[in-house]
């Protein structure tokens, strides 16, 4: 039973026209045209049933409307995967492919595959929403790129295991996962072999490629006496019975505890569940982890404009970035509701 593929093309590859037709609004063509015909010819596990056509200019200037319109065009259709491109080094087309793949993947819960040159700005927009095959710089590479798309689409449609990025030819999507090597390829052997290469000036390949980190700028100083302040911590301090079961490591949740009417946190009423430091001090004196007495003093002296009555806490130990960002966003919603503009961030 052949699976159904829908393909997205821009106005040029869809045969609508060149730059003069870049404002072409999304339409749905039953069957194939140009690249979608080429893909259909190559696929063994699927057939291209429809081709979505849209002008690059329209997608760039009316992104939300274009995506919504594509969503409506696809509503009610049966399909198993979305293909888009290849977009080569064309920035607008690459961004369009990434936008459409991300949107359709999320709305219809189906996989999406595109292809572009490594420097295309579309490559890094939504890496986890799609497979982006490493493609050619210009349209002359169409004959090289299309078989790459067909190969991975066939694998996905057949339910075969998708190997790591390098093995399959897609750009890494931000996941790391382990594989087992033959037993004799121990870390000890690999480490010493890599060291010998590095010492000899021979090329070697790290097993953990490291990119430059995404930095968040530090907020400028502000007048605390006019600020609305909250305290958020990854130090793992919780009420003594740990009512929200905050774990000692790899946390996925935070606790939110009412400080109204409290001037101090007492030993025996609070404890640390953090598995990454010696909890003895915090258990003896919880205010080492959450200095409520000092905050109340600053509040009384007018040095803090307003103190938010809730304390937010989780365990930072081994807690992953994805969960950290999600919890931060959830906490921010509570803070926004109380017009908080300053957060004291405590850690372990």
């Amino acid at each position: 039973m052949m699976k159904k593929v829908i393909m997205y093309l821009n106005q040029f590859y869809g045969g609508i026209g060149g730059e003069d037709k870049a404002d072409y609004e999304p339409s749905l063509l039953e069957g194939v045209v140009g690249p979608s015909k080429a893909l259909d010819d190559m696929l063994t596990a699927g057939t291209v049933t429809y081709t979505i056509l849209c002008g690059d200019g329209y997608m760039a200037s009316h992104t939300e409307e274009a995506l919504e319109k594509i969503g409506r065009l696809l509503e009610g259709l049966e399909f198993d995967i979305l293909a888009a491109g290849p977009a080569f080094m064309s920035g607008r087309y690459g961004v369009s492919c990434a936008e459409v793949c991300n949107y359709v993947h999320k709305r219809f819960k189906i996989p999406a595959v595109t292809c572009m040159f490594e420097e295309n700005p579309g490559r890094e927009m939504y890496p986890q929403s799609m497979y982006i095959m490493a493609g050619s710089k210009s349209g002359a590479g169409m004959r090289k790129d299309m078989p790459k798309m067909a190969a991975i689409i066939d694998k996905i449609l057949k339910g075969e295991e998708i190997l790591w990025a390098e093995a399959e030819g897609y750009f890494p999507r931000g996941f790391r996962w382990q594989i087992q090597l033959p037993k004799e390829q121990t870390a000890a052997k690999r480490t010493v072999a890599m060291l010998k290469k590095k010492l000899d000036g021979e090329p070697f390949e790290t097993e953990l490629p490291i990119d430059a980190e995404e930095m968040v700028p530090i907020a400028p100083p502000r007048d605390a006496s006019k600020s609305r302040v909250a305290f958020v911590s990854t130090g793992g301090l919780v009420p003594i019975d740990n009512p929200d079961h905050i774990p000692s490591a790899a946390s996925t949740r935070f606790g939110r505890y009412d400080l109204s009417g409290k001037d101090v946190l007492k030993s025996g009423e609070w404890k640390s569940v953090h598995g990454g430091y010696d909890q003895t001090y915090a258990n003896e004196q919880p205010m080492l982890a959450m200095p409520l007495d000092a905050i109340r003093k600053l509040e009384a002296e007018g040095k803090i404009g307003y103190f938010h009555p809730w304390f937010y806490t989780t365990t930072g130990n081994q807690t992953n970035r994805v969960n950290s960002v999600r919890m931060a966003k959830e906490i921010v919603e509570y803070l926004k509701a109380d017009d908080i503009d300053t957060v004291i961030f405590g850690s372990a």
Binding site: L163, P172, I179, L181, T186, A187, R190
Partner: peptide, 14 residues
């Protein structure tokens, strides 16, 4: 994890 050097596992980018 076989950190003494035993491990025949490796992480790959997906």
């Amino acid at each position: 994890d076989g950190n003494a050097g035993w491990s025949h596992k490796v992480c790959k980018s997906y």
